[in-house]
Write a protein that binds this DNA or RNA. Structure first.
Lengths: 246, 246
DNA sequence: CAAAACAACTTGTATGTACAAGTAATAATT
DNA sequence: AATTATTACTTGTACATACAAGTTGTTTTG
């Protein structure tokens, strides 16, 4: 009986605008429509999929909501850097800035370990049953360590990815471009805590200095895959920022 | 010559869907469509505005993006609490929770003062020229002070609002329901700092305890009106949370 | 009486069409 | 030569229509 429910839930609904949306998203992910370039015009896309502008516009509207494109009346739909439109927490001027030189060093390669009880979110049964992939990184700005970052995810949902394979050192970029997995949302908890001995050592600061502790769960487009993060930020010189707009 | 540009920028474009959108938003703000209730059906709205479903659906789509409603296929469009859909930072379980008893006390009534140099955002020329309205609040959970909050805005953009007039103690609710001003976005900077003497006194903690310091600029739907906030959060017992989803 | 079928509503998807409005390069005018 | 108008594109708004799909209450059926 429960099989029926699953089958029903998995039933693929053939929405024409979904087909178009998925096709264009995939072309963006694989760099066939690079960031900064313009998509084919709505009428051209109509031709490719033998449909009407109403349907094409619905697909583009969804990609707009997903943060892949922006529209310019009279010009076209431009591919944009998705991260910026996502309202994630970032170190001020972290990515895409020329003011700082940012380097990310993987200090513990992706490997299979136990789930860490420091994760404040409740794991799903599937995640509890699964092995856990862990890796640790330290982010440097101008050669000084600023963020210590622990990451976990369920190995049942995603293979171990070698850190050397990270595209431009970014795990998220790798997920998008190699595995077509996108961040769909996040829950975060922020705390101000004194630096522990381990954190102090990794960030090259004194023990007890106030540190911003962020616990985060990223929801992804891949069913069952959540990314858990545990970040320790030295905000003395570089505050953590975010912004969102309607 | 520059007058022409201004006139051009202010030119009101008569979009039918804007009319419908504004009308429904206003009814929600004034409680004529209360939270939890369903809007009239799309076809009914069509009748009221003698238009087609395409146009009505465009208006509802915008209200969906703005976070005022959610849609349920087969049932209708339901009015929802907007704050929750906004991804703002909040104390865990702060609003709408029964676990905690939350109280907000205005410790310094809205009054005209000088702009505080602690604001890390660059003020506009208009704001610099204007007087500045300031008020301070302390938020308590279970009778213990948890957040100290300073707020500023330009008096030229909005009159002084007496704190006794705050609807349910909320400044945002007052803005929405009395002045039809909505939050359109925010920029935030987060820092972990040791509690100063003043903060320690207000939050009833020891000086030097790590405190989460949040600087925020809210953009509003009223041109020229930004709200500036300066928050000091004791996250020992209650972490600061946010979440966003596509 | 209980289950199944139906009817009447709701929102969702899709087609087809027309014109408005913004952009950019080209052609015509001064 | 510089300005203006035209043209050919783009996206934006709006109409009218049809059927799919989900919800809910009523009616029919077994």
């Amino acid at each position: 009986m429960s099989n029926l429910v699953i089958l029903k839930a998995r039933k693929i609904k053939n929405r024409k605008y979904h087909t178009i949306q998925d096709y264009i998203r995939r072309r963006i992910q694989t760099g066939k429509y690079p960031v900064g370039s313009y998509l084919p015009s709505e009428n051209e896309i109509c031709g490719q999929f033998s449909t009407t502008r109403t349907t094409v516009r619905k697909a583009l509207d969804e990609l707009l909501k997903e943060g892949f494109i922006e529209k310019e009346q009279g010009k076209g739909s431009k591919v944009i850097e998705r991260r910026k439109s996502l309202g994630l927490l970032t170190v001020k001027g972290f990515s895409g800035s020329i003011d700082y030189e940012v380097k990310t060093i993987v200090t513990e390669g992706p490997k299979i370990t136990q789930w860490d009880p420091i994760i404040p979110f409740s794991l799903t049964e599937e995640e509890k049953r699964s092995n856990c992939v862990f890796f640790q990184r330290v982010r440097h700005i101008n050669d000084r360590p600023v963020v210590l970052e622990n990451n976990w995810y369920a190995n049942d949902a995603l293979q171990v990815i070698n850190s050397e394979a990270f595209i431009e050192g970014s795990f998220f970029k790798t997920l998008s471009q190699e595995h077509f997995i996108e961040i769909m949302g996040a829950e975060q908890e922020l705390r101000s805590i004194p630096a522990s001995q381990e954190v102090a050592k990794n960030l090259g600061i004194q023990e007890g200095i106030p540190i911003l502790h962020i616990s985060v769960r990223f929801r992804t487009s891949k069913p069952g895959l959540n990314l858990y993060g545990d970040l320790y930020c030295n905000t003395t010189d570089y505050p953590i920022c975010n912004s969102y707009f309607l």
